[in-house]
Simulated scan of single mutants.
Amino acid sequence: MLKKLMTAAALAALGTLPAHAALNAGDAAPAFTTQASQAGKAFEFSLKEALRKGPVVVYFYPSAYTGGCNVQAHTFAVNHDKFTAAGASVIGVSLDSIKRLNDFSADPEYCAGKFPVASDADGSIARSYELAIRAAAAGKKDTRGADIDHATTERTTFIVTPDGRIAAAVGGLTPAANVEKALEVVQQLSRKRT
């Protein structure tokens, strides 16, 4: 019994270790242009264009309308003004379709129209950041009861500076802690600029 408990504790601890993102602080962030949605309206998002205004928090998450992703989106929305005050913008990226993201981006419980979420339906953006992609699990439902029929990527956040470099890669944290760490990084960047 004790051995089973120790094994379970060790496995649980592994879940809290930082995700291994091959891209780390100092690496060039791959530029991307893709369909995104904000407040239910689709548009073309360009990382290169967004970086002209300041640092960009690029956060990858598994799927809209799932437990942890709902918490993370809500936490980013609640803290949106703090990111803006630090001169940073936020973009969420998942392998969801733009149709699902139109709903998610406008949902007052989650993104609340505060920041855009981008569709990486083929996983090419996640792969360019060297993130792991998992195939869709048959029969998996989201929190609304709809099928999740797309692959997912690991939860990892990259803070990208206007020169296109990664200032920090944040993984292996709970969804809310992930947002808090990203905010801490952009606030440090803001203090360095002033």
Rank of each mutant, 00 (worst) to 15 (best):
L2S: 11
L2Y: 11
L5T: 10
M6D: 10
T7V: 14
T7G: 08
A8Q: 13
A10H: 13
A10E: 15
L11P: 06
A12G: 07
A13Q: 14
T16Q: 14
P18K: 01
A19N: 10
H20D: 14
A21C: 07
A22C: 08
A22S: 13
N24G: 12
G26D: 02
D27Q: 06
A28G: 01
A31S: 15
F32A: 00
T33P: 08
Q35D: 14
A36K: 09
E44F: 06
E44P: 03
E44N: 12
F45W: 03
F45L: 09
S46T: 06
S46W: 11
E49P: 04
A50S: 10
R52C: 08
R52W: 04
R52F: 05
G54W: 04
P55V: 07
V56C: 00
V56Q: 04
V57E: 01
V57H: 10
V58P: 01
Y59P: 01
Y59F: 15
S63A: 15
S63V: 06
A64K: 04
A64W: 01
Y65P: 05
Y65H: 08
G67E: 08
G67Q: 13
C69E: 02
N70S: 13
N70E: 10
V71S: 13
Q72W: 08
H74I: 11
F76C: 05
V78S: 11
H80Q: 14
H80N: 11
H80V: 01
H80I: 12
K82A: 15
K82R: 15
F83P: 00
F83A: 00
T84R: 10
A85H: 10
A86M: 00
V90P: 01
V90M: 09
V90K: 03
I91Y: 05
S94M: 02
L95P: 04
S97E: 02
S97V: 06
R100Q: 08
D103T: 13
A106W: 04
D107K: 05
P108N: 07
E109M: 10
K114N: 00
F115Q: 00
P116G: 05
A118K: 09
D122Y: 01
G123V: 04
R127T: 03
S128G: 05
L131M: 06
L131C: 07
R134C: 07
A135R: 12
A138W: 08
K140W: 07
K141S: 10
D142S: 09
A146R: 11
D147M: 12
D147V: 14
I148A: 04
D149A: 14
A151E: 10
T152A: 10
E154N: 01
T157R: 00
F158M: 06
F158G: 00
I159M: 07
V160I: 12
D163Q: 05
G164W: 06
I166C: 00
A167V: 06
A167R: 08
A168I: 02
A168F: 02
A168T: 14
A169M: 02
A169L: 07
V170L: 08
T174P: 07
T174M: 10
P175W: 08
P175M: 04
N178W: 10
A182C: 13
L183C: 07
V186M: 02
Q187S: 02
Q187M: 09
Q188G: 13
S190R: 14
K192P: 07
T194H: 13
